[in-house]
Design a protein around this nucleic acid. Structure first.
Lengths: 203, 203
DNA sequence: TTAAATTTACTATACTAAATGGTATTTATT
DNA sequence: AATAAATACCATTTAGTATAGTAAATTTAA
């Protein structure tokens, strides 16, 4: 997933020859990510990536052997490991995590990446695999950890499937977006509370 | 959204000239829908549609003026108005509707269409608009109707946002699919029950 | 110490082969 | 005569490559 490193005969001493421009890797990855989110994988052209990164095409191909490799590297590089801190209060921790998610998909083109990853499922399955690994799994794992802790503290109704609750939480955002409705500021709070208390009026 | 009809000076008498092949419209729409679902809108080529429909490109362009118009027509034609019957039992009606949905996105390429519609949000926004109108809105409306009736019967906890419950129900499928996990046969039932009773152990 | 040789990175440009949306022209059918 | 359909075509775009020359680093030799 990382750029192809030039061979080195000696680990300590610098390799001979002109060293790579140090900032170029990131410029290319940023451009690729942005163009893929905005236009989709198919419409992300290598010419456009080169132009936006301020380099030429051979400079890209020196680092990544193909368009799909570049796209996967861009997803990997974007992978946002920063998560909201865990306090131990289940409700506020869930809301914080969902707010983090809401802001992510409220960014410009924040949801389009989901689209192109799903759309490429059959043509370019590696893209969906990478997308899941770098952008989907980390958030799901964080939510699962929160809910497992709540379950250990006896805060969950017996028999509740934690994975299903994760799907309910995350999916509600997808559904709202797919429907074309806006994600209001108090959405995360209402979402967590409704799911926590349930929809039914009687037990 | 319908194919362009040739002008007719007289409603009763037949229009002059060679009549259109009667089944061609549907063949083209079927091919367009299938190819769009399988390969995505960008990769759905007019040549491939023509080949799969057993016609030539000008035959398509006689009916729809452009690729995007054909794609929207294909979505419209696919629009599945058939819904499971409503019995009045909220739980079983919800489960039936969700099972209907589960089967739809479990079909081959059933979810890829969501992907390409989302991916085209900025390049071809008409596609997402049509997708919402023909494939998203009908299902959401059916669920909303079910839940409104339940609410009128006092079956919902006071203050519950019906639109939010719709998002929770539908979105859970999306989230499961995006995560790459299979949609088991008892999914709809577990989903409805979990959401109905809530996740919390105490009131 | 210094200059040349070597090695690698980068730019610029052109190119290929294939695919694509759309059309002008011709032929077939009623 | 009038319309539908088929053939052949066009202009453009695209991923990827090839070539020629320049820039920046190290290695080697005088």
């Amino acid at each position: 997933m990382n750029p192809v490193e030039p061979e080195r005969s000696n680990v300590v001493s610098r390799a001979p020859g002109r060293p790579r421009e140090p900032e170029t890797d990131q410029h290319i990855l940023d451009a690729a990510f942005r163009l893929m989110a905005q236009h989709g994988y198919v419409r992300m052209s290598m010419d456009a990536v080169a132009a936006e990164a301020g380099v030429t095409k051979p400079t890209i191909y020196r680092r990544w052997p193909s368009k799909i490799e570049l796209a996967m590297a861009a997803l990997s590089a974007y992978c946002d490991a920063s998560r909201p801190p865990v306090t131990g209060d289940t409700r506020s921790d869930l809301i914080a995590e969902m707010e983090h998610f809401r802001r992510a998909i409220s960014r410009p083109y924040g949801m389009s990446l989901y689209g192109t990853a799903l759309a490429e499922e059959h043509e370019t399955p590696e893209l969906l695999v990478a997308f899941r690994e770098y952008l989907v799994v980390p958030r799901r794992r964080a939510l699962r950890t929160l809910l497992n802790a709540a379950q250990a503290r006896g805060e969950l109704r017996p028999g509740v499937d934690v994975a299903l609750v994760v799907n309910l939480l995350i999916g509600a955002f997808y559904a709202q977006y797919v429907a074309g409705d806006p994600l209001a500021d108090d959405w995360s709070e209402k979402l967590v509370d409704t799911l926590w208390e349930g929809a039914a009026s009687t037990r």
